[in-house]
Design a binder for these strands. Structure first.
Lengths: 229, 229
DNA sequence: TCAAAAGTGTTCGAATTACACCCATGG
DNA sequence: CCATGGGTGTAATTCGAACACTTTTGA
């Protein structure tokens, strides 16, 4: 059967923990549509798949070309949106992605592009709001049983910084003591031996840590029904 | 940019717990290619996406039309395979799925189609072996923190039967006592009040149970870093 | 010496495993 | 009454939450 033109696009929810009024928050990168359809609404970065590239390469390329974001420490597939009527005009099948950018990088963005805290999203284009929700749920889940936080953290960091990252990404408070204990038992952190100098208010200097891996790894596979040891 | 013809297809790893020599095992539905390329290798059921349907409908339709499997109790997306060279000829982007069929159904299959235990897969076509691996990992993970077993179990069943299903799907032994306790605490099972008659060797009649939900539900969300209550 | 921030230790409760023991039925 | 399978009770262990206490710095 011959098909009418179907476009395959990637859409990426790029997350970064950023400082807003009221402390650090999880933010997502969006650009505002200058033209109809849905002029003025905010969209996820992405674009059309080329003949010679796969979807992951395509998503990376879109981020580098269009919004100049090159420092994506982790990128993974979410689900495919394939409803024939999800956007007006010719059919567009969207493969969606979750992308993570470390705390310290601050790319220069085009004029129409900005970081938005996920707790206060603007009016979103088409089904892009659903994609952001999926990405948040996926990130929160993986923070609990993988080392995925490596992609949100700087290369070296104090435990208090890592705690801020977890709190912002999860949307609720996490105890620094237990965070350290859990990550230590799972061997996802390494002490660097160095310390940070305390702030102007004084206080004990914080030891600096680093993630042992720079790729995602499952650290707590089974909640129940483990294989017998 | 105009694209050369790109076909979008669905591929589904359909799993069922079936009886083989040596007891129940997790099995996957495969068909054998009668023509080149890769004549003789075994493939997952699937096919081309139509203009008016989304991918999930397409996957369901392929299973009903081509292998006459209608009783798919659960179907969910796995990842997309989009390498331009994943198959010879025109580009085919494959959206892959995990499908589950209850223990009791036994569909009549075409001649080229058969159930294979996942522990002893035949030579697989293209990247279809990878899809089966993804599906196994996903199923094992979700057995631990969701009620997904409802889609592998008959409507009513004894705990010993459910235990066999878990053991087969996970690939290792599970304690029946703890299985019952965990599923009870999570309120995924309901007693039916009826009992099964014992086998020829005697023994106490088994109470029959039923899953409370007939759709997937997360029953144990966070392993670590729960929100404060 | 005090406040602030970092790090350590301890207790409590919940979840999971492992295993012993009791119950119901057929022969 | 005994073998066979179904079901219940319980100790041991592990894990995470909560919180008090100690350590190290700047003012």
């Amino acid at each position: 059967m011959l098909h009418s033109s179907t476009i395959h696009e990637s859409l990426t929810a790029v997350f970064q923990v950023r400082h807003f009024d009221g402390g650090p928050e999880l933010a997502v990168l969006l650009w505002q549509r200058a033209l109809d359809p849905q002029k003025g609404t905010w969209s996820l970065p992405g674009g059309t798949l080329r003949d010679e590239e796969d979807l992951t390469s395509s998503a990376r390329r879109q981020l580098a070309e269009k919004v100049d974001v090159r420092d994506v420490a982790h990128l993974e597939q979410l689900s495919v949106f394939s409803d024939p009527k999800r956007v007006p005009g010719p059919r567009r099948i969207a493969s969606t992605f979750l992308g993570l950018v470390p705390l310290t990088t601050d790319p220069t963005l085009p004029d129409d592009t900005a970081w938005h805290p996920v707790s206060r999203l603007p009016e979103m284009s088409f089904d892009h709001g659903i994609v952001v929700d999926h990405a948040r749920v996926r990130l929160a889940a993986k923070l609990s049983y993988t080392n995925i936080a490596f992609a949100l953290a700087p290369r070296e960091f104090a435990m208090s910084t890592l705690r801020e990252i977890y709190c912002a990404a999860l949307g609720y408070d996490v105890d620094a003591t237990n965070l350290q204990r859990v990550l230590n038992r799972r061997k996802v952190l390494m002490p660097t031996g160095t310390t940070a100098s305390p702030g102007r208010a004084g206080g004990r200097p914080a030891a600096l840590y680093r993630f042992t891996d720079s790729a995602i790894r499952v650290t707590d596979e089974f909640a129940a029904f483990r294989p017998r040891t």
